[in-house]
Design a protein around this nucleic acid. Sequence first.
DNA 1: CTGAAAGCGCTAACAA
DNA 2: TTGTTAGCGCTTTCAG
Lengths: 350, 350
Amino acid sequence: MRERATIKDVAARAGVSTTTVSHVLSGQRPVSAATAERVRQAVAETGYRPAAIARSMRTRRTETVALIVPDIANPFYPAVARGLHDALVGHGYRTLIGSTDGDRAAELGFLDDVVARSVDGIVLFGHSLDAEDLRTVVGGRVPIVLSSDLGTTEHDLVVVDDVEGAEAATAHLLAAGVTDIAFLSGPKGLGPGDWRLSGYLRALGAAGLAAAEDHLVRGDYTVESGRLAVGHLLAGGAPPRAVICANDLMAIGALRAAHEAGVAVPDGLAVVGFDDIDAAALVRPALTTVALPAYEIGRRSGELLLARMSGGPSAGEPAREEVLPTRLVVRESTPPVAAAAGEPNGGKQA
Amino acid sequence: MRERATIKDVAARAGVSTTTVSHVLSGQRPVSAATAERVRQAVAETGYRPAAIARSMRTRRTETVALIVPDIANPFYPAVARGLHDALVGHGYRTLIGSTDGDRAAELGFLDDVVARSVDGIVLFGHSLDAEDLRTVVGGRVPIVLSSDLGTTEHDLVVVDDVEGAEAATAHLLAAGVTDIAFLSGPKGLGPGDWRLSGYLRALGAAGLAAAEDHLVRGDYTVESGRLAVGHLLAGGAPPRAVICANDLMAIGALRAAHEAGVAVPDGLAVVGFDDIDAAALVRPALTTVALPAYEIGRRSGELLLARMSGGPSAGEPAREEVLPTRLVVRESTPPVAAAAGEPNGGKQA
DNA sequence: CTGAAAGCGCTAACAA
DNA sequence: TTGTTAGCGCTTTCAG
């Protein structure tokens, strides 16, 4: 068993040509029952398994997709990876994973490498690549699903509806009778934080409210920055009755700040986070948060890829953009909403 | 740019043979400076990149390793994946990932598939495969690193020193003057929980102490089971002064039980967990815990594989067993140890 | 220093 | 219903 049997060995043992063996295995053309049986015998006896590389060489398909992310150890991406995996595995595809740390050279290098390896599809969470880079490196030879809009319509896109998520969170607080809501966003000009901010502003506007200038603050997505920012808010002249944070880590910092200031959550201050990391449910009080559909993102990406790769219906069609909804997970850090009525986000609670 | 350039195109354009192109790229044999330059020109102009599959076909190496885990979305494994990735990526290797949910058929299927794909190495976190399965499916053709002892010495092994981790945790409590320590392990007969239990017992024994029979309890690794078990302990006749839990989730449950019983942590009850999940640092009081070297496991596995794959020094040698140390991360859920002296575990604190 | 030719193991025309 | 032949794009003897 040192050496692996080849199709030739099987053919010899079954007394047929390699072509026939190939066809018995693939079902690509009819083979007489007797012959097929002899071949299957031989396959069993030799423990033969087709060499995937040789097959790929002919078919020009590797049944492999690449998932390129900044850091697979960041809890968001494993969920994406699992979703992608689940979408693909039943179709015989495997996932090649790469972490780039958002580094441009690493992103380019990995992309280049997987193209050279002839992957059938790519799911890219890029930080620093633009449409031109993709054109240069990939050149339309491999379908790509992107997680951020690069301003072209060459590739499929799967994104999260951050705006709507923040709207839902804001509306939920409003429905609970809390109107004095602060917003803690991320560093200026960094994507998701600002989308979320705008959703919050829009929801306030829709309710005929305006955000108090000094209730709009920024952090850097760490627990400590949340603690500091919200500590400040609480110590200020007109502390808010609630704060929506652009991620859970800052929201956990907000919980601490409230505790330190002797403010009860949710009665003195309601806190809402974003992401729904594991810790959100474990912290006390458990965090109400806008959950991102990480698994779903992976799954949808896989499905889009599948359609393109198999030469399926969408094979030649223009790029699609999928906007996935968030889900408001209501826990203990927000007050109960009085009535069941008027909740604009029907099925969104946990 | 629709079609990718082949080595033939490059050769033609440079006016040399494909052999020469190959050698310019690989440096496998001397090429005159002038020729090399012309070839490099042609490579640049055509945007040529060697097709990895064709190369693999000849060299019988794919520069790919498979990582097979129960669930990539379980936070332990992404850290392993990252460690593996980091060990390999600089050597040109990529990682193929598969989640099996611990299902035997899925483990077998994935293993079989990656062998057919001719991966150069495998890191397996198997739940239900035995040594015989590996012999059947892999048959010694591909080096494997295992995460649990299957009773053979055919494969390299990378494991965690659970016993020593529990000993260190126990010793730490002892050093802080706490002697009445309970232990909350997992379901009977499930690996890590029992190893940890035995480390605890050994440390107690070494201090001339014995565990009170009714301070040895079991949970199922969930927060709720920890809350229940420790709630019981606290309500009993002789509540312990500390509890070591076989994982962090149960330890967080213990924190809750203490809170509910009006017992202060760490003064009324000290709590130690195992794993060091993200939430351990975010919970209040922050959890003292025995951190598992997940990243390190991945990295070491990659290094062992590298040595075997490259036909390096260890290529033909007998299997190695690596036992990686845990690290006690001291936070707020345990009382301070009085003196700096007598700590048996030198560099282990965070 | 360079090339011609063989072949990795498979699948897909093309023939019978 | 089956077989023969030709490659897929590379690397590597073997010969100059």
